[in-house]
């Protein structure tokens, strides 16, 4: 992707409010998934590469470890 396209797309996203929105970040950090019971074991989180942060839905796990 060339820089011009990248800049205009970024400009659009920011202008539309979908870029740099602190609003989304503040809420997303609170998106604690309702953990399925079998996923609640301590230590399990570290083994699942896909559970990057507290707001990951944990629907998927990565198979590339």
């Amino acid at each position: 992707m060339n820089d011009k396209v990248k800049l205009s797309r970024r400009g659009f996203l920011v202008a539309a409010g979908a870029g740099g929105a602190a609003a989304a970040a503040a809420v997303a950090s609170k998106v604690a998934p309702q953990q399925p019971a079998e996923a609640a074991a301590p230590g399990d989180a570290q083994r699942r590469g896909y559970r990057l942060t507290e707001h990951v839905l944990s629907y998927y796990r990565t198979t590339k470890v």
Partner: peptide, 19 residues
């Protein structure tokens, strides 16, 4: 990039609300 993080956060929120 910040705008991509914001998009990811909106997707995270929608994923959670739709789950």
């Amino acid at each position: 990039a910040p705008e991509d993080q914001a998009r990811a956060d909106f997707y995270a929120l929608l994923a959670r609300l739709l789950y």
